[in-house]
Every structure is written in structure tokens, then in C-alpha cells.
């Protein structure tokens, strides 16, 4: 059982810890949908400092609507941005 399932709405944490992070600033605090579960991977935020990267983290692809990312987005409402987010950066969204 993975922590999140495909199609589930998730929020990417609006957190700003210092150091090596793989969650780009432009998606922090934004809401999207789980597109797929990619597998468990060593945590790059630990690997970056010489630790062994364990425990491994679940990695998900999250799909966000471009309209939710940018004010005055140039394209149609159907355009999306997909990217990979580790489980500890995701939180459930209550419907």
C-alpha cells in the first residue's frame, strides 16, 4: 500500500527548509493530482550531505493545472505541469 493513490488530490507543502531540496519553489503550496507512483527512492536531501538516503521515500508524479500555478497563464485551462515529488513533501487535501 502506498501513501497516496492515483487520482488523489494532494497539496505540495509550502515549506522552506534550508539546504538541498528537490521540490521547486514554484510548486510549493500548490495543489494537484497524483498521476502515478514511481517507486521508492533514496532521499536526495540526505544523499546530498553524505548520508545513505534511507529510509527510502515514495516518489510520485503530481499533475498540476497551469492555471493554478501562474496568474494569467497564456494557454487553455487544460494545460498541465507534471513533476516528481517525494512523499514527505505531500499532504492530503480534504474534499
Amino acid at each position: 500500500m502506498t501513501m497516496f493513490s492515483v487520482g488523489e488530490r494532494v497539496r505540495i507543502k509550502d515549506s522552506h527548509p534550508p539546504g538541498h531540496r528537490r521540490t521547486p519553489f514554484y510548486v510549493r503550496g500548490k495543489t494537484g493530482v497524483i498521476e502515478r507512483y514511481c517507486g521508492d527512492f533514496k532521499n536526495p536531501e540526505e544523499l546530498a550531505y553524505g548520508f545513505d538516503g534511507t529510509p527510502k521515500r515514495e516518489l510520485y508524479r503530481v499533475r498540476l493545472a497551469q492555471n493554478d500555478l501562474w496568474e494569467n497563464y497564456e494557454g487553455p485551462a487544460s494545460d498541465t505541469l507534471d513533476l516528481e515529488i517525494y512523499d514527505h513533501w505531500l499532504e492530503k487535501v480534504e474534499d
Binding site: 528537490r22 517507486g39 527512492f41 536526495p44 516518489l59 494545460d79 498541465t80 507534471d82 516528481e84
Partner: peptide, 11 residues
Amino acid sequence: TVRVHDSNADM
């Protein structure tokens, strides 16, 4: 639909 994929991690 234009889908942009940001390859920010292991894929």
C-alpha cells in the same frame, strides 16, 4: 493540451 514535464528527481 500542452503537458510540460519537469524532470526534477529520479525519472
